[in-house]
């Protein structure tokens, strides 16, 4: 408990320092402004009072804003912290009452045990294979169709494009049912192909890349045409390099999609063919909580790569997300 109190004191101190630093500048400027205006002592007194009142109001506002944000940020971060903390505890420490906020001993070997007990190596390889090949396929279909929609003139283009967009509104479950049957009928149950091929087209990414392509000026295209450059060469040499930020966004989001996919692999695969999220949910589901530390170690292994990708590619992820409606 004392640790918790120290912890909150540190946060409080931190908030005060920030507020002090933020407040300082405007108040000093107000003071100077005031100096030039002094005519009468009473006026000055009244003025100073008002400024003081304004500063207090400002401080109160900052205190409210920063405390609200700090509490919210704490609640957002806490589950991550609790996952890390639990993942290095020993089996006995996990069951301890009261719970230990900071682990007494660090048990790094939990990660090794968790990896081995749940066949995680195999799941990881599966996920990488599925992620890489579904991303490559998606990039091919996305680039070619976005190019056709953005640059080429053909009959029915706008109608076809709005039909593509319309499919985004349909809940995926409608498709999943028949696709499940299709995969069964084709004898593709429990194969990589079943997890890769149905996900080679994503209308949202086509939409995203088509918008990027549209921003590239037409003049470049006509100039290339005059030079006798073929459409395909123009796409590869001019458009792709210009659109590379969007390509990176699509690649990251697609890989993250494979890493997080659960439902579809759960339906059409078994045991060794499952992906990492299935392995995570399927293992360590003991009722008594004796394996909580191992479960959290495995969860950490799944979560850390995502957080790292987020830290390094924040800009690209935000760009893709802010234009989408619903997640997924």
């Amino acid at each position: 408990m004392p640790l918790l109190i120290i912890f909150s004191l540190i946060i409080a101190l931190f908030v005060i320092v920030i507020i002090y630093k933020t407040i300082e500048k405007p108040s000093r400027r107000d003071g100077r402004l005031n100096h030039n205006l002094v005519i009468d002592e009473t006026i000055e007194l009244e003025y100073q009072k008002q400024i003081r009142r304004e500063i207090i109001a400002k401080v109160v506002r900052y205190v409210i804003a920063y405390s609200l944000l700090t509490v919210a940020a704490f609640l957002v971060v806490f589950p991550f912290y609790w996952m890390f903390a639990t993942s290095v505890k020993s089996a006995e420490e996990v069951m301890k009452m009261p719970p230990t906020i900071f682990p007494h001993e660090i048990h790094i070997e939990n990660f090794k045990v968790a990896m081995q007990s749940a066949n995680f190596g195999r799941f990881l390889i599966n996920t990488l294979i599925v992620g890489v090949f579904s991303t490559l396929g998606t990039l091919v279909t996305t680039v070619t169709s976005a190019f056709a929609f953005a640059r080429l003139n053909f009959r029915g283009r706008d109608l076809l494009f709005s039909m593509f967009i319309a499919t985004m509104m349909i809940p995926g479950e409608m498709m999943v049912i028949t696709n499940f049957i299709t995969i069964m009928e084709w004898g593709m149950y429990n194969t990589y192909a079943a997890m890769i091929i149905p996900f080679w087209v994503s209308t949202y990414y086509i939409y995203l890349l088509r918008n990027t392509f549209k921003q590239i000026p037409n003049e470049l295209y006509y100039a290339a045409k005059v030079d006798g450059t073929s459409d395909f060469k123009y796409l590869l040499k001019v458009m792709l390099p210009i659109a590379s930020p969007t390509i990176i966004t699509i690649t990251i989001l697609k890989l993250m999609g494979a890493w997080n996919s659960y439902v579809w692999p759960n339906l059409i695969t078994d045991e060794d063919m499952r992906l990492i999220t299935n392995g995570l949910r399927g293992s360590f589901s003991s009722e008594d909580g004796a394996t909580v530390h191992l479960q959290m170690a495995a969860t950490t292994v799944v979560t850390v790569p995502l957080l790292l990708v987020f830290i390094f590619f924040r800009k690209y992820i935000m760009r893709g997300v802010s234009r989408s409606g619903i997640k997924g």
Binding site: V76, V77, N260, Y262, R281, T299, V302, T303, I317
Partner: peptide
Amino acid sequence: TIFFMPYVTNSIAIGMV
């Protein structure tokens, strides 16, 4: 950055947490 973190996580994994 902190407030955006839950978005990039695996919903199964953090559900377990």
